[in-house]
Design a binder for these strands. Structure first.
Lengths: 226, 226
DNA sequence: GTCTATACAGTGATAGAC
DNA sequence: GTCTATCACTGTATAGAC
């Protein structure tokens, strides 16, 4: 590990893969696992503390409240997700200017679906669903903090690919695009059951193979006149 | 009130617009309002009972649990929603065989967005978000009970309009379509903020004017070869 | 600073009186 | 049928040990 990485680790509380030592890190690790597995209200502060092997009062001490702990878990996931998105977008731009529409879509979608299907972040997107209905004030704050900048960057990239699309339509269509990603990541049960297992949204590759042409066609079509 | 109406009320517990008399109806009415306003966990059993003017133990007595009460509220909304969808679909079929793709889409989408934007059902779709993250077992059951039949009917209608689309692709694209509707109804904050208010998904007409051409183009495009 | 022990008000649910 | 009293449990706050 370089000196620079070591400093980053110390200041940023990012224990990578080592055994966590303080209650702070142990709680974060347990919360990541349990929130993903059982949702926010599905796990109590006392269970979190027990799983982390620490006293239950420490979640209030270290994170202010149970919500504070959730916010921190959420923030860390978004950090990874957005970093990956921007890396892939830069790659797409490096290949051609303007980038291919399909490449921009993939840069935005792949990290969202893979983080959702991976081991550690398996049910990460479910946390958004939890919050969206429930603590909608907290959710608005978290979404704004973690996604506003990244979303604006992708809307710009889309407009770059679609120079004839009015800005207002770009907003609408970006919104619809978010809906398809969100629903694919958060609610895979539905379509799996309806199709008798023929469509499985937790298969990221299959989902993207179906989703990207669909979105590209919708994005390219001329908007209604009126 | 006619004799027939009185019998219907007694058997069906559908008080229409009259003052509810029993605790059962009073609770349903209060729950519809309060769940929509504050979400599921945002309102306690004691608050529900107080708003209905009945003892708090009666929600367990009449509905088994707080979840049971929610299920009943949910079921009643879905009943209206699906009835309206099928009425509009029949209308579209009456105009042309096969029906126009755009007319089928409108029959499916309009009731979902209007029920979401109306007075009584303003935050109805938020309830789905609540459940989807949280009580995912209950949600799966409710969705299956209330939407499986209606969804299958609309997938059939889509395939009627798109005879060249493989059935598996139809499932995928119906799934994506659901995502755009769901996200538009449940999460209007996001796009409103990003667009500085220029796009407002709670304006059903504007949302449909943007959404239907987008979906129609995506649905019509030939799927990826592979 | 970090942590333990404990207390508090509020939750959904339930047994049993009337 | 209706309601009271009560239960086990929740998230949070705090006093005080180390």
């Amino acid at each position: 590990m370089s000196v620079r990485e070591a400093i980053a680790r110390r200041t940023r509380a990012e224990p990578a893969h080592v055994q966590p030592e303080g209650a702070h890190d142990k709680l974060l690790q347990a919360a990541e696992r349990l929130f993903a597995a059982h949702g926010y209200n599905g796990v109590s502060v006392r269970e979190l503390a027990a799983a982390a092997g620490v006293n239950s009062a420490l979640v209030a001490y270290h994170f202010g409240s149970k919500e504070g702990l959730l916010s921190e878990v959420y923030r860390r996931h978004c950090e990874k997700l957005n970093g990956e998105r921007q890396r892939l977008l830069a790659e797409a731009r490096a290949k051609s200017r303007p980038p291919r529409l399909e490449a921009v879509l993939e840069a935005f979608i792949r990290p969202a679906l893979e983080v959702a299907g991976g081991d550690e972040g398996e049910s990460f997107t479910r946390l958004r669903a939890v919050l969206s209905g429930e603590n909608s004030d907290l959710l608005d704050k978290l979404v704004a903090e973690n996604f506003d900048r990244s979303s604006a960057l992708f809307i710009d990239a889309l407009c770059e690919c679609l120079p004839h699309l009015p800005r207002e339509q770009a907003y609408w269509r970006f919104h619809f695009l978010l809906g398809t990603i969100y629903y694919t990541a958060a609610g895979p049960h539905r379509i799996r059951a309806l199709s008798n297992g023929r469509c499985d949204p937790s298969d990221s590759e299959a989902a993207m193979r179906a989703l990207i042409p669909f979105l590209a066609a919708g994005l390219k079509t001329p908007p209604a006149k009126d």
